[in-house]
């Protein structure tokens, strides 16, 4: 059971949260200029790293805010938690390289 530090509420147990999958997905636009392969990629293709994964979580049973989590998929180490409007922290970007 993960311990996640909600940027607004502090450390809380995993059952309070919902994982919304990979973060930083870029929605292709405008829709009429997007070919099927690109759209299909956006809908269905996701990273599946053995290592650091950037994902978005929702404090569903708390403040109801979304935020980003950099989580190591093997150790479950939480490398960083940052707001939706913040870029990937440098340290995390380094760990992923």
């Amino acid at each position: 059971m993960l311990l996640l530090h909600c940027p607004w509420c502090g450390p809380r147990d995993e059952p309070e949260f919902v994982c919304g999958g990979q973060s930083h997905m870029v929605r292709p636009e405008p829709w009429h200029a997007v070919d099927e392969a690109t759209w299909g990629h956006y809908l269905f293709t996701r990273d599946n790293p053995k290592g650091v994964h950037l994902e978005r979580w929702h404090h569903a049973h708390g403040c109801r805010q979304w935020f980003n989590v950099a989580r190591h998929t093997v150790t479950h180490e939480i490398l960083a938690i940052y707001r939706m409007d913040e870029p990937v922290p440098n340290a995390v970007a380094g760990a992923r390289a």
Partner: peptide, 13 residues
């Protein structure tokens, strides 16, 4: 209601 929040917080910020 949750989906609206998700789109507003994550996409159309």
């Amino acid at each position: 209601a949750g989906l609206m929040e998700e789109w507003l917080q994550c996409e159309w910020t």
